[in-house]
Design a protein around this nucleic acid. Structure first.
Lengths: 203, 203
DNA sequence: TTTGAACCCTGACAGATGTCATGGCGGGGA
DNA sequence: TCCCCGCCATGACATCTGTCAGGGTTCAAA
């Protein structure tokens, strides 16, 4: 019997996935959480075998939660699930110790199988996504450039970003310019979107 | 027995919700589709009682699909589901003939109940969302301003927007300026974000 | 030890952006 | 009918952005 932890911020899909997986005779959902920072405590309390983590969650994101699990409870296998096929997420999730990575586009019947494979110690990765990830390579952005793009996400001015990051406006402009160049964008907003789509702005 | 149509672009959550609802003795999922433009044909083919529609879908969005259903198959009750609690969506969904509107944050056990209520002809609306929608009022943006913001969504320049909409650059700047003023933003990007959050940029 | 990469800053400049004043057009509502 | 509002446009203006050329520090690898 595989003891499963389910983490997703949307109660409806969390409950629905629980219903789906509880139909399997060899899987039992022993814990459900809606925040990333509840993953580790819940996994500890319920002696979990496999954790099914969404990437986008309040508290800490799924990748960071996977990192925590891998560090403190290395016996727990992690299967990441995400809405978008952002290839950058895949790389970071694997680096964080995840055993599998699937997108929410995959047919529902394959989910239980993925859980079983991960439990057996196998790796489960969407092949298209893996190819895309390899082709795309790692993030070209330096940490500071990513910081600046993150701060620019909701449309503030250079002055806002500089204040938030305790930098001079000139420095912010330089980082932005560099990030725009590296992403091939023509605008700050476009650079933010591209970096986001590629999964380059995670923690 | 309530015959249900399920429309969501993510196969995994679609399948999971089907599993959840099929556990109910009085509900039967008779059709599943992943695109907005498949909703009407599928509803026709399967003599559906209730349609559970996600707002964000490829093809046409859920609100437009609801409009189609209401026009061609008025007997079908529509229950909208969405990820975000964007109050503007609620107003437009109800105007499109939907009988209910719930967010994916609601507990899974309430879903079947919502389906039953909608089937009985009752209205189902998240109270918080309804209050927010009333407080927020309708979109202050004129159609053209919304067009311009939509075109500005992925970070193009004024010249790009002008080309896409066949307008002069000056006009685009005027509409943008007006939209920025109305939304209380200080930047184009901020205005886009605010309008998006409020659901003012639907079709 | 030298080199390079990442980080921070300054200053200057062209071009893009946001604002404003102004005017013409069409379709309601008073 | 006249007037107001949404729409389109022009031109001018101050400000903001993105780019470039500098020059500084720290740290790790060669």
């Amino acid at each position: 019997m595989i003891k499963l932890l389910l983490a997703d911020d949307q109660a409806l899909v969390r409950g629905a996935m629980a219903a789906l997986l509880d139909m399997e005779p060899d899987i039992k959902v022993v814990a459900e959480v809606g925040r990333g920072d509840q993953v580790l405590p819940a996994a500890r309390d319920h002696d979990v075998d496999v954790a099914l983590l969404d990437v986008e969650m309040p508290g800490i994101d799924g990748v960071a939660a996977a990192r925590e699990l891998h560090k403190h409870l290395p016996a727990v296998r992690v299967l990441m699930v995400t809405t978008f096929g952002r290839a950058g997420y895949l790389r970071q999730a694997m680096a964080a110790g995840a055993s599998g990575f699937i997108v929410k586009d995959t047919p529902a019947r394959q989910l239980a199988d993925a859980v079983r494979r991960v439990h057996e110690g196998l790796r489960v990765v969407d092949p298209d996504l893996a190819a895309q990830s390899l082709a795309q390579g790692e993030s070209p952005l330096t940490e500071r450039e990513a910081d600046v793009l993150r701060a620019a996400r909701d449309g503030g001015t250079v002055a806002d970003i500089a204040r938030a990051l305790r930098l001079s406006e000139g420095t912010v402009r330089n980082h932005l310019s560099s990030a725009i160049g590296k992403t091939g964008a023509r605008t700050r907003a476009e650079a933010v979107r591209l970096a986001l789509d590629n999964g380059w702005l995670l923690s």
